[in-house]
Simulated assay, not measured.
Amino acid sequence: MPAPSLPARVLLLAGLLAPSLGGCRYNYVPLIPKPVQVTLPTRVTSATLVRESGTLVLKAQVEGRFEPGYLSAVWFDSARELGRDSVYLDAGQRGATFRLDAPEKGAYRAVLSFGGTVLRQVELYEVQP
C-alpha cells in the first residue's frame, strides 16, 4: 500500500485530533447573568432654596435606602450661623420643607445632613459674600 499524500496525512491527523480539541471549549455559558444587587446610599435628589417675601424656604427630597431619622438643616449668612432645624423622615415621608425668617438680603446657604452625614449644601446669594 502506497504512503498517503500530504493533504491526506493532514486530513487524517486532523480527524484523529478532533475529539481531543473539542474538550477545550466551555461547557456552561449563562445566557442571562445574575441580577446585580445595588443598594444606593441616602442622597438628596432635589433641593431648592428660595425667598418668599421675608422668609427663606428650603425644600429637599431624599432618596435611597435609609433607616428612619432626622434630616437636619443648618442655616448660614456668609460664615455666621443663623439657626438649625430638623424634620423626621421615614419610608412614607421622604420630603422636607424648612423655613427661616430673613427680612434682610444676604449671602444665605443651608447645609443638609442625615444621620450625621452632610449630603448637600444649597445657596442663595442676594448680595456678594
Rank of each mutant, 00 (worst) to 15 (best):
D90Y: 15
A47E: 08
E67F: 12
T97H: 04
L49K: 04
V38P: 02
V57Q: 11
V127T: 12
L56P: 02
R109L: 03
T39R: 14
D85R: 09
T55E: 10
S72H: 10
G54S: 14
A102E: 01
S113Q: 06
A96I: 02
E126Q: 08
G22T: 12
S86F: 10
R80D: 05
T42M: 07
R43L: 13
W75F: 03
P33E: 10
R109S: 13
R65C: 08
V38R: 11
F98H: 05
K59T: 13
Q128A: 15
G54T: 14
R25M: 10
S5W: 00
Q93A: 10
P41M: 05
T97M: 09
R80H: 02
G69I: 11
V122R: 00
L124H: 02
G64L: 04
V74L: 04
Q121T: 15
V111M: 07
L49W: 03
T39W: 08
R25N: 09
V38F: 09
A96K: 05
T39E: 13
V127H: 02
G23L: 15
L71V: 03
A18Q: 13
G106K: 02
W75V: 01
E104W: 01
S78A: 11
Y125G: 02
P103F: 00
G95A: 13
R65S: 14
L119C: 08
N27R: 11
S46D: 12
L100I: 00
A102C: 06
Y125E: 07
V74D: 03
T42W: 08
A79Y: 06
V62N: 04
L89R: 05
V122Y: 01
G69D: 04
G95E: 11
L100F: 02
T117N: 11
G69T: 08
A79T: 08
L31A: 10
L17C: 10
G64M: 08
P30Y: 11
L71I: 05
V122C: 02
P68G: 05
G83E: 03
F98T: 04
V127S: 00
V74C: 00
L58V: 06
G106N: 03
E67L: 13
R25I: 11
R25K: 12
P35G: 03
L16S: 06
L16F: 11
V118E: 15
A18K: 05
S113C: 03
V122Q: 01
E126F: 01
S53H: 15
T39Q: 14
Q93E: 12
G23A: 15
E126C: 00
V118D: 11
D90L: 07
R84N: 06
P2S: 14
L13C: 07
S72T: 11
R99M: 11
A18C: 07
L40I: 04
V111F: 06
T55A: 08
D90I: 06
E123I: 11
E63H: 03
M1N: 06
M1K: 12
G83N: 02
T97D: 01
L40W: 09
